[in-house]
Design a protein around this nucleic acid. Structure first.
Length: 838
RNA sequence: GCCCGGGUGGCGGAAUGGUAGACGCAAGGGACUUAAAAUCCCUGGGCCGCAAGGCUGUGCGGGUUCAAGUCCCGCCCCGGGUACCA
């Protein structure tokens, strides 16, 4: 009797059975190879969206496939549960951030379970519970002890809308990464983590990641870290400043052009500016200019069409090599935050200085000469920035400029006027947030003892839940006495707790380590579990985290390693950066009304069809355009498999995947049998390669579709004999087995309906018979002068001279050789014969 | 500007230097049906041809090769990242 495909009940049934039999639970087992596959954990924003469904489907196929390959697979899930949306929702709906968060988690957990992901739910981690964040409070104390965490006052990125500071990485085009509002600068005392201590290692270790990480992510990190080598050079002031300052120090990557430095540019914020103009009649004018520059916000200041502007301070410094007087200018393009905030200007060889000098009529001196036409400052229309030989730089004239870099720095060094130097674009990580819904920073302020770390035994410093969040979004913590008032851990007198919380990127910087043993209570990690499971073998997530999360996590692993907790250097051996899910070519958004809900799709088509479509429609790293007709297609495919098995379940002997033999084929005596068994084994190989090595799930599914098509083609003929039926049954079993990672419920149900009592979820990958990959007849094409003229069906081991003769004898080949002489015949075994004739 | 991707049928997308367009979607045709849906089968880059077959075709222009979507050189367009970083 026929039975319709009803995914809803069937999927729920198998999810229950997998859970009951603990198929996806994993334990440390050093006798087996492990595979740790992880997708970036979600922020519990309310509901799973289609983008989530895509990443987790990709990860799940990999997890299930690796399990079938015999790996002990760790595939966990958790919640990045601290963060501002919870506070915003709390304000909007009058609920508590905690309640909102936990409700969302419950909803989303149920949604993920409905998708049938093979997760070990015992390892679920939620970052907003004290049992989790207590450990990062401990890390913080250790960092503090080591000087890796420190407090400093500095201008910070401040978002007015979020009422909090932001790290450099979280400011995008002068705007807040979360709410897109303008970021302004505000002078504040904040907690920092010394990520710059690891700049060199973070850069160097990118080399070891090149194998498994997308090149673009590696290069984005390289650029972000931004290592520059060059030199610090001191320029004496013509007249020492009142406060005793006698020189300006600059950083340059081009010490070879020092002889061409004709003026000096300093940032508006440079402390020396005030000293230089103190008694100058120009003082007011200069101050006004500086104020103007400082007030222009970050966005304007960084705009590419920003006109270069400056003002002469009236003061001079001296070129250390030529002794020439160099006017000191304040320039709007010089940043206080990079290098020393002062730049030696070489207009002939730096485009910015060139434009600036042209505008203000400052001298240009050529000191690097390319081979060929000599440069003339009067006729140059742009700076010459490429390689060349030194001129006007006695005694370095004639030297290649690369060599001159070292030579000049050495010379300066011997005079105490310079030294080689390396600077970084990377800044220390500001982790203070003036928000409520985050992990408290475990320090106190005591009037007598100053800044005092909380005692380790007093951890966790629990974020109080019985507070009322404020309408305006500001943190309620500073006004909440039971939290703020606490005894000083050092002297016991009343002290004040720090009310800033940690950046939520701190939680996500180590959650993947905690998964190895989230049940540990006395310590953050279980060393045996760490040793076995870490690092992550395959990490999967959106490329939008290329810098933020991935850089912070890399830093955290290195810092925790140096504290003795970890024994590995990099968190993620391989990274798959998956593309976005679009609708009609555009990003899904509520305002556009083009949001596709995975729930709705799962209700209508079942989780398997949704998974299948998400994997089939595009390779993972590319953006995927959701298509309503496309999901219909996947739904049809799923049902096509269903019907095939439904039709065959009572007439086929249940047999293992890839169990038919060459003898069965011979006995069946049908071309269909040979072809089907060949296809069966080709598919095993192709799918393994596409899933396991190339991450091309779309072509893996295409290969299985081909097998399904061939099963439909051959089934009737094959059912005629017992041997044929064995060949058919083996191929059906193989098809279900290799498809199981993609549509696990469907395959499991079909498997059991075929009479199997074991679980496909716990099955092993079919064993390939290399002999079955060899076809007994192959098609070889014949080209004449590069154009296809004939096809030959021949035995694979046909001798070269035989096939060449056959090729030449083909009528259509003869026709195209008329009036020509054959000059050369190339044979590529198994592929083609190429005839060259004139 | 610089650094990454990418440009292939009506669409999503396949192709270790070796039959371009696998697989799917949409389309057309056929079978089944009273009919429709569903299903099953067939066709399908363009032009010419009843067909066999021919010409042409992977953003543009060159090149290497018996053979180029694929490799090299020079461009154009689209997407992303990034930038007065000295």
């Amino acid at each position: 009797m026929q039975e319709g495909y009803s995914p809803k009940s069937m999927e729920a049934k198998w999810q229950g059975i997998w859970e009951e039999r603990k198929v996806f639970h994993c334990e440390v087992d050093p006798s087996r190879p492990k595979y740790y596959v992880l997708e970036m954990f979600p922020y519990p924003s309310g509901r799973i969206h289609i983008g989530h469904a895509r990443v987790y489907s990709i990860g799940d196929v990999l997890a299930r496939y690796k399990r079938m390959q015999g790996f002990n697979v760790l595939h966990p899930m958790g919640w990045d549960a601290f963060g501002m949306p919870a506070e915003n929702a709390a304000i909007k709906h009058g609920v508590h951030p905690a309640g909102w968060t936990f409700e969302n988690i419950d909803t989303m957990r149920a949604q993920l379970k409905r998708m049938g992901y093979s997760l070990d739910w015992r390892r679920e981690v939620t970052t907003c519970v004290p049992e989790y964040y207590r450990w990062e409070q401990l890390f913080f104390l250790k960092f503090l002890e080591k000087g890796l965490a420190y407090r400093k006052q500095a201008p910070q990125n401040w978002c007015e809308t979020c009422h909090t500071v932001l790290a450099n990485e979280q400011v995008i085009d002068g705007q807040c990464w979360r709410c897109d509002s303008h970021v302004v600068q505000k002078d504040l005392t904040q907690w920092f983590l010394r990520i710059t201590d690891y700049a060199q290692e973070l850069l160097d270790d990118l080399d070891t990641l090149e194998q498994g990480w997308p090149e673009r992510v590696v290069s984005m990190q390289r650029n972000w870290i931004g290592r520059s080598t060059g030199a610090y050079i001191s320029f004496d002031l013509e007249h020492p400043a009142e406060d005793g300052t006698s020189a300006i120090r600059v950083f340059t990557t081009r010490p070879d052009t020092l002889f061409g430095a004709t003026f000096m540019s300093v940032a508006a914020e440079h402390p020396l500016v005030e000293q230089l103009i103190k008694d100058s009649p120009r003082a007011d004018e200069v101050r006004a200019f500086c104020t103007k520059v400082k007030n222009s916000d970050r966005l304007q200041r960084g705009a590419e069409d920003q006109e270069k502007e400056g003002i002469f301070t009236g003061a001079y410094c001296l070129n250390p090599l030529t002794g020439q007087r160099m006017p000191i200018w304040v320039a709007n393009f010089v940043l206080m935050g990079y290098g020393t905030g002062a730049v030696m200007a070489v207009p002939a060889h730096d485009q910015r200085d060139f434009e600036f000098a042209t505008k203000y009529g400052l001298p240009k001196q050529v000191v690097i000469q390319p081979a060929g036409e000599p440069l003339d400052p009067a006729t140059m229309d742009a700076a010459y920035v490429d390689a060349g030989f030194l001129v006007n730089s006695s005694p370095f004239d004639g030297m290649p400029n690369e060599a001159a870099k070292t030579a000049i720095v050495q010379h300066l060094e011997s005079q105490g006027r310079g030294e080689p130097a390396v600077t970084w674009r990377l800044r220390d990580w500001n982790i203070s947030r003036q928000r409520y819904w985050g992990a408290p920073i475990p320090v106190l302020y005591c009037d007598d003892c100053g800044v005092v770390p909380e005692k380790e035994e007093n951890l966790p410093v629990v974020l109080p839940l019985d507070v009322k969040t404020r309408e305006d979004g500001r943190s309620p913590l500073p006004d909440y006495a039971p939290f703020v008032q606490a005894p000083c851990p050092s002297c016991g007198k009343p002290a004040r707790r720090e009310t800033d919380t940690m950046d939520t990127f701190v939680e996500s910087s180590w959650y993947f380590i905690r998964y190895s043993a989230p049940w540990e209570h006395g310590r953050p990690f279980d060393p045996a579990a760490l040793k076995y499971w870490l690092p992550v073998d395959q990490y999967i997530g959106g490329v939008e985290h290329a810098i933020l999360h991935l850089l912070y996590s890399r830093f955290f692993v290195k810092a925790l390693r140096d504290l003795g907790w970890l024994q590995f250097d990099e968190p993620f051996k391989a990274l798959l950066a998956q593309g976005m899910v679009l609708k009609d070519g555009a990003k899904m958004s509520k305002s556009k009304g083009n949001v596709v809900s995975p729930d709705e799709m799962t209700d209508r088509y079942g989780a398997d069809a949704v998974r299948c479509f998400l994997l089939f429609a595009a390779p993972p790293e590319r953006d995927l355009d959701w298509s309503d007709t496309g999901i219909e297609g996947s739904f049809r495919f799923v049902q096509r498999v269903w019907r095939l098995v439904d039709e065959l379940k009572d007439v086929l002997p249940a047999c293992a995947a890839a169990s038919s033999t060459a003898a069965d084929v011979a006995e069946a005596g049908l071309p269909d049998a040979a072809e089907l068994r060949h296809k069966e084994h080709v598919t095993i190989q192709k799918v393994a390669e596409d899933i396991g090595e190339k991450f091309q799930f779309n072509t893996a599914i295409a290969a299985i579709m081909e097998l399904v098509n061939q099963l439909y083609q051959g089934k009737d003929a094959l059912l005629a004999t017992p041997a044929g039926a064995r060949v058919l049954s083996s191929a059906v079993s193989t098809m279900l087995t290799v498809l199981a990672p993609v549509t696990p419920h469907l395959c499991e149900e079909c498997w059991s309906r075929l009479g199997h009592t074991d679980l496909l979820a716990a099955a092993t990958w079919p064993v390939l018979d290399p002999a079955a990959l060899v076809k007994d007849a192959i098609t070889v094409v014949v080209q004449v002068n590069g154009k296809l003229r004939a096809r030959l069906d021949v035995a694979p081991d046909i001798a070269e001279d035989v096939i060449k003769a056959q090729a030449l004898a083909e009528p259509n080949v003869q026709k195209h050789l008329e009036g020509k002489t054959v000059q050369k015949v190339v044979y590529v075994p198994g592929k083609l014969v190429s005839v060259v004739a004139k």
